[in-house]
Write a protein that binds this DNA or RNA. Structure first.
Length: 557
RNA sequence: GCGCCUGUAGCUCAAAGGAUAGAGCAACGGAUUUCUAAUCCGUUGGCUGCAGGUUCGAGUCCUGCCAGGCGCGCCA
């Protein structure tokens, strides 16, 4: 632990105090079953427990009276808690002491970016696999959302203390490569002036015309001379390589980084697909029917049985996917999170049941469905398909609204919910746009710090002056700062980055309020230094919130 | 037909089973001799799709409807 006195330990302190009070009253209550939560309304204090409400039911007592009795016996650590109060139907509320809150401000300034780093993960390995779009064209909008969410999850989990690997699964095997090859082959022949129709099953996008223009003519002519199947394969590989380059440069443009691009073809090359099939056979979950080999997924909770090997002997995508996940498991990822599109939700059961048969825990891997995105412009839904069979791409979006706004907007909504992306709003560089609102707060602080230094006021070596921060706006801002470690923990546990977009906006709002009411650089030197420290603590937490969301924190705007 | 996701203010969305359901935008009215007005303050706005149930307590969990999206292939 980098920070022993963070808000989590404040909760622990409150829990211990309650447990002692309960046992004082002769009530047997398991310590872990005492719930401590953070009230939605800050008027209800900083921490709250419903233990009296729960106990009252069992004891058939009046909850408020019981709460009063418990509260009167609570002995709290004054370094953490200033007041204990009864409220509502019988909640016991704790208010942080001023000492605790101001100590946290010092702590934030001392720790810098590592404030909020948590021990939740305890260094455990987690893999997050996201986007993994088929390499048959540029990344489209739903992939952009998955990229934003996946990258944010990776950062959040890392901050929460997990050893995280970000991976992209490249489907570079199977029938689509042949389709892609045939498409490029046709485009190349068209480039040579042949008047031939484009295959109906092909990928009609303009990008293949461009690739057909870019590939060296001598190479391509040599491929054309090969037998048809070999020719299609050669063109397919060429298309695949170029498209993966496009995808990687799109991701780079978006500021999303991976630790590994895992190719499906590796699984075939290393015989892992066949080995996986053999393992499933050993477990007696495979049978043959109509010349195909089936997985008994219906017995394992799926709607029906699924084909592993087709009657023509070729393995299905599902078998390869099972092999891929066995590979993940063997790489030691006891936690694996897959982000999939909503059109794949029907695959969750079959994959989890196959993985379970192969030795994974139940419910492994965790699959998060990233719901569809609709683009809205001037109040109307924008069609995602453009001329020539192309779709609005990640690159189009980034060029339109910028990577910061795109990411922030994608992360404002919970992952499982449909998202209407308001292009008109995202384009605006004004106060209506939440991402600028947050970034502006950061820039404003940087500017004020610079101003203060010019005037000879700097961060003091002796930080005890923060005790002077007693104005309402100062206290509210500090209370917002100290919950940051919990937010990281919560976002990591629920796998929901949108907690942090909401938090960043709230924190920015608290700062702006504080700034408006409390002049930072004034003739009172000690107070100026104290406020400068508070501003800096805010800047640190804002910057860190934005960093895990993948959004830049500018010093000037 | 079956399965998954969604339904909250005019719009976009929060609320990890808790207290009077909150923000932003939009609309209207205010605030600056001062460190960034891309800011702040205020007002208006709600039968949380409908009906039951579980619970001390339900927007949240369960059941049934209604509406929208997606899926239900020896495609990936």
């Amino acid at each position: 632990m980098t920070n022993e006195r963070d808000a989590a330990s404040a909760s622990e302190s409150a829990r211990s105090a309650l447990a002692a009070a309960l046992s004082d009253l002769g009530l047997a209550f398991e310590r872990e079953s005492i719930q401590i939560e953070r009230p939605a309304d800050t008027a209800h204090g900083d921490l709250s427990s419903n233990v009296a409400l729960v106990a009252a039911k069992q004891l058939k007592r009046n909850p408020r009276e019981l709460a009063a009795e418990i509260a009167s016996r609570v002995k709290v650590d004054a370094d953490f808690v200033a007041r204990v109060e009864i409220a509502g139907p019988g909640f016991i509320n704790f208010a942080f002491s001023h000492v605790y809150v101001t100590e946290q401000v010092k702590e934030i300034v001392r720790l810098g970016a590592s404030y909020g780093d948590g021990g939740l993960g305890q260094g455990r390995a987690v893999q997050v696999e996201f986007v993994s779009a088929n390499p048959t064209g540029p990344l489209v909008i739903v992939s952009a959302r998955a990229a934003a969410i996946g990258a944010a999850l990776v950062s959040i989990l890392r901050k929460a203390g997990y050893d995280v690997q970000a991976e992209y699964y490249v489907n570079d095997a199977g029938s689509q490569v042949a389709k892609l090859g045939l498409s490029l082959l046709t485009r190349f022949r068209q480039r040579l002036g042949e008047d031939i129709p484009f295959p109906e099953e092909g990928y009609p996008g303009e990008y293949l015309v461009e690739i057909a223009r870019e590939i060296p003519e001598t190479d391509a002519r040599a491929w054309l001379a090969l037998p048809e199947e070999a020719a299609v394969t050669a063109f397919g590989q060429a298309a695949l390589d170029r498209i993966m380059q496009m995808i990687q440069s799109d991701l780079e443009l978006f500021g999303v980084k991976y630790d590994r691009f895992f190719r499906e073809s590796e699984l075939y090359r290393d015989g892992e697909v066949q080995k996986t099939l053999a393992l499933l056979r050993e477990r007696n979950v495979v049978y043959e029917e109509d010349g195909a080999q089936w997985f008994r997924s219906a017995e394992l909770g799926d709607e029906k049985d699924r084909v592993l090997v087709r009657s023509d002997g070729s393995p299905t995508y599902f078998l390869a996917d099972a092999a891929y996940h066995l590979n993940k498991l063997r790489r030691g990822f006891l936690q694996a999170i897959d982000l999939w599109g909503p059109d794949h939700h029907g695959h969750i059961k079959r994959l989890q049941s196959a993985a379970h048969v192969l030795g994974a825990p139940e419910g492994w891997p965790e699959v998060l469905i990233v719901q569809w995105v609709r683009l809205v412009e001037d109040g109307k839904v924008v069609s995602m398909s453009k001329r020539g069979g192309e779709f609005v791409t990640l690159r189009d979006l980034v060029e339109d609204v910028g990577a910061d706004a795109a990411k922030f907007f994608f992360l404002m909504r919970k992952t499982s919910a449909h998202l209407d992306f308001n292009l008109t709003l995202a384009r605006k560089e004004s106060d209506e746009n939440p991402v600028y609102y947050v970034q502006y707060a950061h820039a404003r602080i940087s500017s004020v710090v610079a101003f203060a230094r010019e005037g000879g006021v700097d961060f003091p070596a002796d930080t005890s002056c923060v005790e002077l921060l007693t104005e309402n706006e100062e206290v509210e801002l500090m209370r917002k700062l100290v919950i940051f470690p919990e937010l990281i923990r919560g976002a990591a546990l629920t796998r929901e980055p949108h907690f942090l977009t909401a938090y960043a906006q709230q924190l920015a709002a608290e700062f702006h309020r504080f700034y408006h009411v409390c002049r930072i650089v004034s003739s009172d030197r000690r107070l100026s230094e104290a406020r400068l420290l508070l501003a800096e603590a805010t800047r640190i937490v804002l910057a860190e919130s934005l960093r895990v969301l993948g959004v830049s924190a500018p010093d000037k705007m």
